[in-house]
Simulated scan of single mutants.
Amino acid sequence: MTITVPESTPRTPVGGYTWREDRSAAALSGRNEAERVGAIARSIGQAAVEILAGTRPASQLSRWTDPEVVERFTQRAAMLKLVQEQCPERRAVFEVHRAARIRRIRMCSPAPGCYEASLVVDEATRARAVALRIERVARQWRVTHLEVG
């Protein structure tokens, strides 16, 4: 008695990822590129609000942003901490940063290799706006401008 075993075919996970997929710059175009940049924008936007809250150090932005952005956020976070210490009666105003979450993100690509994103960040008592400009620099995405309103 012989048993025939069917040839196994590689399984493709639900997300569609296949092993040894081409990861060149040409393969990272279109929808995949926009999804990756959107994920970067979300994580950097969340981190920026947490830095202003004092729950995260600004140095964590250094991998994804220009040095000027990190320096500005370091100074702004230090200034907010000083205001918190000097105005204890306004402590409730600063607590809004603690439970921030991304409500919405909008992106556009004004030029190849460049994206601009705007995020609405929901906090306990208000919503904030975050604007980013993300550019491809030597096969890596870098946040070149970051503003939190």
Score class of each variant (00 low, 15 high):
A26L: 03
A26V: 05
A26Y: 04
L28Y: 10
G30H: 09
G30Y: 02
R31M: 14
R31D: 08
N32D: 07
E33R: 00
A34T: 11
E35F: 12
E35D: 15
V37H: 00
V37M: 00
G38D: 02
A39C: 10
A39E: 06
A39M: 07
A41G: 03
A41M: 00
A41I: 06
R42K: 12
S43I: 15
S43L: 12
I44V: 13
I44L: 10
I44P: 05
G45M: 00
G45A: 07
G45H: 00
A47F: 08
E50S: 12
E50T: 09
E50C: 07
E50G: 11
I51D: 02
L52F: 00
L52Y: 02
A53V: 11
A53W: 04
A53I: 09
A53P: 11
G54V: 03
G54T: 14
R56E: 03
R56F: 11
P57A: 10
P57Y: 01
P57F: 00
A58T: 05
A58Y: 04
S59F: 03
Q60L: 10
Q60H: 03
L61E: 05
S62A: 08
S62E: 06
R63T: 13
R63W: 15
W64C: 06
T65N: 00
D66P: 06
D66M: 08
D66T: 15
D66R: 14
D66V: 11
P67H: 07
E68D: 12
V70L: 00
E71D: 12
E71P: 07
R72N: 05
R72W: 10
R72C: 09
R72S: 08
F73Q: 00
Q75K: 12
Q75M: 09
R76P: 13
A78P: 06
A78V: 06
A78C: 14
A78H: 05
L80P: 14
L80K: 10
L80T: 12
K81H: 14
V83F: 02
V83N: 06
V83R: 09
Q84M: 14
C87L: 12
C87T: 04
P88Y: 01
P88A: 03
R90Y: 12
R90C: 11
R90A: 12
R90K: 14
R91Q: 08
R91E: 14
R91M: 07
A92R: 09
A92D: 06
V93N: 05
F94E: 01
F94K: 09
E95M: 09
E95L: 08
E95P: 14
V96I: 04
V96Q: 08
H97S: 13
H97W: 06
R98N: 08
R98D: 12
A99R: 12
A99E: 07
A99F: 10
A100C: 03
A100K: 01
A100W: 02
